[in-house]
Amino acid sequence: MSAYKLFFQDVYLGEVTMGEAEFPRHVGEFVPTTTPCESALCRRLHAYLALTRQEAVDEDPNVDYSEYEDLIDSEDWVLADTEGRRLPISSPAYGLDGELIWC
């Protein structure tokens, strides 16, 4: 299994271990960083990911993501491997079992 670091721009969010992939969807185990956020962007990113987790746990299709549309539509999400290669991904979201899902 491959290990990656999840970034939005230069904000490090945690480690991702690749799991199953069924094109175009990918799933991986996500371990968020425990380093406290220093920037407003970092806090927003963690709030967005927490909201996706809440939606997955509560199975609530009416969650309002309107304040995060810029993050969702952004092309600044990347996974970086141990050699520094960066793989652009869609905005990730938590799945039912706490895994991270992206395209």
Rank of each mutant, 00 (worst) to 15 (best):
Glu67Arg: 15
Pro24Ser: 03
His46Asp: 09
Asn62Cys: 10
Thr34Asn: 11
Glu29Gln: 13
Gly95Cys: 00
Leu87Lys: 11
Ser91Tyr: 04
Ser74Pro: 06
Arg25Leu: 12
Leu71Lys: 12
Phe8Trp: 07
Leu41Gly: 00
Trp77Met: 12
Val63Gln: 14
Glu29Tyr: 05
Cys103His: 15
Thr52Arg: 03
Arg43Trp: 02
Arg85Asp: 15
Asp10Asn: 15
Leu87Gln: 06
Leu87Asn: 09
Ile72Ser: 12
Ser91Lys: 01
Arg43Glu: 14
Val78Pro: 00
Pro92Ile: 01
Arg44Asp: 10
Ala3Gly: 10
Leu41Asp: 08
Val63Ser: 13
Asp97Phe: 00
Leu87Trp: 11
Ala21Trp: 09
His26Ser: 10
Asp64Asn: 15
Ala93Asp: 00
Ser2Pro: 14
Gln9Pro: 04
Leu71Thr: 10
Ala50Leu: 14
Arg53Ala: 09
Ile101Gly: 00
Leu41Arg: 04
Phe7Ser: 08
Met18Gly: 07
Gly84Gln: 05
Leu41Pro: 00
Val31Asn: 07
Glu99Cys: 05
Gly19His: 02
Ala50Trp: 08
Pro24Val: 04
Tyr65Cys: 09
Pro32Asp: 03
Glu59Ala: 14
Asp81Glu: 14
Tyr4Asp: 04
Arg44Lys: 13
Pro32Gly: 01
Ala47Glu: 15
Leu71Trp: 13
Asn62Arg: 12
Gly95Asp: 00
Arg85Asn: 15
Gly84Val: 05
His46Pro: 02
Thr34Ile: 05
Glu22Met: 11
Ala40Met: 05
Val57His: 03
His26Glu: 02
Gly28Leu: 03
Tyr4Asn: 05
Leu49Ser: 03
Val63Ile: 13
Thr34Cys: 07
Leu49Tyr: 01
Arg44His: 02
Thr82Leu: 13
Ser74Thr: 05
Phe8Ala: 07
Leu100Gly: 00
Glu99Ser: 13
Ser74Val: 06
Leu79Phe: 06
Val11Tyr: 09
Arg53Leu: 15
Leu6Ile: 08
Tyr12Lys: 12
Ile72Cys: 08
Pro24Ala: 09
Gly14Pro: 11
Thr33Val: 04
Ala21Leu: 10
Ser74Glu: 06
Asp64Phe: 05
Pro88Leu: 07
Arg25Thr: 12
Glu15Val: 13
Leu45Ile: 07
Ser91Arg: 03
Pro24Lys: 07
Val16His: 01
Val31Glu: 08
Asp73Arg: 10
Glu67Gln: 15
Ser90His: 10
Leu13Phe: 04
Leu45Pro: 01
Gly28Val: 01
Arg44Ser: 11
Glu67Pro: 07
Arg86Cys: 10
Ala80Gly: 06
Gln9Val: 14
Gln9Ile: 09
Tyr94His: 14
Pro61Met: 05
Tyr48Arg: 06
Glu59Leu: 14
Glu99Trp: 00
Gly95Gln: 01
Met18Thr: 11
Thr33Met: 03
Glu83Met: 13
Gln54Ser: 10
Trp77Ile: 11
Asp64Trp: 03
Ala93Lys: 01
Glu59Asp: 13
Leu100Lys: 02
Cys103Ile: 14
Ser39Val: 04
Ser66His: 08
Leu71Phe: 15
Gly14Ser: 06
Lys5Glu: 15
Ala40Arg: 12
Ser66Cys: 04
Ile89Tyr: 04
Val16Phe: 05
Ile89Thr: 06
Thr35Lys: 13
Arg86Thr: 11
Pro24Phe: 04
Trp102Phe: 13
Pro92Asp: 00
Pro32Gln: 05
Cys42Gln: 06
Asp76Gln: 12
Thr33Cys: 01
